[in-house]
Amino acid sequence: MNIFRLAGDMTHLASVLVLLLKIHTIKSCAGVSLKTQELYALVFATRYLDIFTDFISLYNTVMKLIFLGSSFSIVWYIRRHKIVRRSYDKDQDTFRHYFLVLPCLLLALVIHEKFTFREVMWAFSLYLEAVAILPQLVLLQRTRNIDNLTGQYVFLLGAYRALYILNWIYRYFTEPHFVHWITWIAGLVQTLLYADFFYYYFESWKNNVKLQLPA
């Protein structure tokens, strides 16, 4: 474990807690894309298949349970909770996320570290996570007023993967044989997708104006 990875995990944890807090306290999911939340639940479900078979550390297992639990409960809140679901804007959250799942699955069947179920699922979860934010970014461009919590959620989600890139660089130089091309490329693509959001997020923060993404 290194400081970049710990900071990345804590930033990732903060992003899901910010979102859960928003939905649980103000009972609203306005501006939140259910599609992105469903994709993230699928990312964790396919990435943490080994949660009960390979014990790496208490930290690793606890964090996996938190990410699985939070992502599925956010999906439950937006789909089932009688008050929260009313604030879900399904007419705006129209990104066909199934068009993201299939190409990621096909790519995982072609490019993986080993042709085993778990490794293909691992590669699938990496490719899917790289594009999972797209429905949310599209929704933010459509809904003019982005509330602070949703903006913070997206920012933290992007920042966590950027910190992971520093972690991979650190591990590459400190650990022999630490080479994970698939993870590195997927993580880089994922972070680049946030680039324009980061730009507008910092602009709004610097000029102290409401965050607005160009349509």
Partner: peptide, 10 residues
């Protein structure tokens, strides 16, 4: 570890 790389990251 050579070859099969275990996944120890989240």
């Amino acid at each position: 570890k050579h070859g099969f790389q275990y996944h120890d990251e989240l």
